[in-house]
Amino acid sequence: MVPTTFYVLLSAVLFTIGVLGVLIRRNAIVVFMSVELMLNAANLALVAYARERLAVDGQVLVFFVITVAAAEVAVGLALLVAIFKSKRTADIDEVSMLRG
């Protein structure tokens, strides 16, 4: 079996890539995707540790994360659509004013 460290390292790298995506990209949708990537990286670490400890609790947590992610994506994308309707762009730099 592959040691847990490998999985966690992979998870760390993926998470960092997600952070970089959030920081660098200006397309709001891609930023959002990066957030999802971060969530997945965290999920991977959770599952890896769950396997190491043979505790299903980690998997339950991942289940919750996925559920909440689904809700978050639905709301987030609806917001993006609403922003797009008023700004005509998905560039987050354009959304720098407090007024619509």
Binding site: P3, T4, T5, Y7, V8, L9, A12, A48
Partner: peptide, 17 residues
């Protein structure tokens, strides 16, 4: 990345599960 990897190496076990 450096922080996360350090933490990962220190936290995870290197043995097979």
């Amino acid at each position: 990345l450096v922080i996360a990897m350090i933490t990962a190496v220190r936290g995870g076990s290197n043995d097979a599960p």
